[in-house]
Measured scan of single mutants.
Amino acid sequence: TEEFVRLWREAVRHNQTLHWNGTDFIPGDEWAEEFARREEEKL
């Protein structure tokens, strides 16, 4: 979602874990980066 992408970019900028829907998205984590890339492509 647009909100997820916005929060993810913020988390990456501050190198912080994003807690989203009970899942931890960690900047630099391969799975999280791939998920975020797919979400961005949907926008």
Rank of each mutant, 00 (worst) to 15 (best):
N21K: 14
T17S: 08
E41L: 13
E33L: 07
F35A: 06
L7W: 04
V12E: 04
E40T: 11
H19T: 12
E34R: 09
F35E: 03
T1L: 13
E2A: 15
N15K: 11
I26T: 15
W31N: 06
T23V: 15
G22L: 04
P27Q: 03
W31F: 10
E33I: 10
E30I: 13
F25D: 01
N21S: 08
R13N: 10
R13W: 10
E41P: 02
F25C: 06
F4D: 02
L18T: 01
A32Y: 03
A11C: 13
N15V: 03
A11I: 03
A11H: 06
W31C: 07
F25Y: 15
Q16I: 14
E39Y: 13
H19E: 06
Q16N: 09
E39Q: 15
A11K: 01
E3N: 09
G22A: 06
W20V: 04
F4T: 00
L7S: 06
D29T: 11
N15W: 09
G28V: 01
H14V: 12
I26D: 07
E10W: 11
W8T: 00
A11N: 01
R13G: 07
R13L: 15
T23C: 15
T17V: 15
D24K: 09
V12K: 15
F25H: 08
R38Y: 08
W20D: 01
N15F: 07
A11T: 03
A36W: 07
D29K: 03
E40Q: 12
R6W: 10
W31P: 03
L43C: 13
R13V: 11
D24P: 07
L18P: 00
E3Q: 10
K42V: 05
H19R: 11
D24R: 06
F4Q: 00
A36L: 05
E30W: 13
R9D: 10
E39C: 15
E2Y: 13
W20G: 00
E2I: 12
V12G: 01
K42P: 01
V5R: 03
L7A: 14
W8Q: 00
L18I: 05
D24H: 08
F4M: 00
E30S: 14
Q16G: 05
R9E: 13
P27C: 00
R37H: 07
A32H: 02
E34I: 08
R13K: 15
L43F: 10
E2W: 14
E40M: 15
F35S: 01
D24E: 12
T1R: 15
E30F: 12
E10C: 10
A32M: 03
W31L: 06
H19S: 11
G22Q: 05
R38M: 12
F35N: 02
D29P: 02
D24F: 13
R37F: 06
T17A: 11
F4S: 01
E3G: 07
R6V: 08
T23E: 11
V5F: 06
H19Y: 06
K42S: 08
A32W: 03
D24L: 14
W8V: 01
N15D: 08
E30A: 15
H14P: 00
R9T: 09
R6G: 05
A32L: 04
R9G: 10
R13P: 00
H19K: 09
F35T: 03
R6K: 13
V5I: 15
E40H: 08
I26W: 07
F25V: 02
E10K: 06
R38D: 04
W31D: 06
L7T: 03
E34F: 05
R38G: 09
F4P: 00
F35W: 11
W31K: 09
V12R: 08
E41C: 09
R38C: 09
E30P: 15
R13E: 14
E41D: 11
T1H: 10
D29H: 08
A32S: 15
T23D: 07
V5T: 06
R13S: 12
W8F: 02
D29W: 04
F35L: 05
W20F: 11
R38F: 08
E34D: 13
F4G: 00
L18K: 00
N21H: 14
F35G: 00
Q16T: 14
E41F: 11
H19I: 08
P27S: 02
E34N: 13
R38P: 03
D29N: 11
E2Q: 13
P27L: 03
W20R: 01
A36D: 02
A36K: 02
L43R: 06
L43Y: 10
N15P: 00
A32R: 02
H14F: 13
N15A: 09
F35R: 04
T23N: 12
W8Y: 03
R6E: 11
N15G: 14
L18Q: 00
V12W: 05
T1G: 14
G28Y: 02
G22H: 07
L18V: 06
N21G: 11
F35C: 08
V12A: 04
K42E: 04
G22V: 02
E2T: 10
L7Y: 05
K42N: 07
G28K: 03
R38S: 10
N21I: 05
W31A: 09
E34H: 08
T17F: 05
Q16L: 13
V5P: 00
R6A: 10
H19M: 06
R38E: 06
E3H: 08
P27D: 01
R9A: 13
E3P: 01
D24A: 12
T1N: 12
E2D: 12
K42M: 08
V12D: 01
F35D: 00
R37Q: 09
E33Y: 04
R9F: 12
G22M: 05
R37C: 12
T23S: 10
E10R: 05
L18F: 08
E39R: 05
V12P: 00
R6M: 11
W8D: 03
E2V: 13
E10D: 11
K42D: 03
F4I: 00
W31E: 07
H19V: 09
L18W: 01
E41W: 11
E41G: 09
W8G: 00
R13T: 12
W20E: 01
E40G: 07
G22T: 02
H19W: 07
W8C: 08
I26N: 11
L7K: 09
R37I: 06
E10M: 06
E40F: 14
E33R: 04
E30L: 14
E30V: 14
P27H: 02
G28F: 04
L18Y: 01
A32V: 02
E3W: 09
T23F: 15
L43D: 04
E34K: 09
H14M: 15
F4N: 00
R9W: 14
G28I: 02
W8A: 00
E41H: 10
L43M: 11
V12M: 08
E30Y: 12
T1W: 14
V5E: 04
T23P: 00
N21T: 02
A32Q: 01
P27N: 01
R13M: 14
N15L: 07
R37G: 04
R6D: 09
E34C: 15
E2S: 13
L7R: 11
L43K: 04
E39K: 07
G28S: 03
L18R: 00
I26S: 10
R13Y: 12
L43N: 05
E39D: 02
G28L: 03
R6H: 10
W20Y: 12
R38I: 10
F4E: 02
A36H: 02
R13F: 13
E3V: 08
N21M: 15
E34A: 14
G22R: 03
W31R: 08
V5A: 04
N21L: 14
K42I: 07
A11Y: 05
F35I: 07
A36R: 01
E39H: 10
N21E: 12
L43W: 10
D29R: 03
T17K: 11
G22S: 07
A11Q: 01
D24S: 09
W20Q: 01
A11G: 01
E33T: 07
I26F: 09
W31V: 08
T1P: 13
R13H: 11
Q16S: 12
R9H: 15
R37N: 06
L7C: 14
P27A: 03
L43S: 06
E40V: 13
H19L: 06
E40A: 12
E2F: 10
L7Q: 10
A36Y: 07
E40I: 15
T1I: 14
A32N: 02
D29F: 05
H19G: 03
W31I: 07
E39L: 15
F4Y: 03
D29Y: 04
W20P: 00
L18H: 01
R38V: 10
V12N: 05
L7E: 07
E33H: 10
E34S: 10
E3L: 12
F4C: 04
G28P: 03
R9K: 14
E40S: 09
F4K: 00
V5N: 05
E39M: 15
E2N: 09
Q16D: 06
L18M: 09
A36E: 02
N21V: 04
R13I: 13
P27R: 02
T1M: 14
T17H: 07
A11F: 04
E33F: 03
E39I: 14
K42R: 12
I26V: 13
V12L: 09
R37K: 12
D24M: 11
P27W: 02
L43I: 09
E3T: 11
T17P: 13
P27I: 05
F25M: 07
V5L: 15
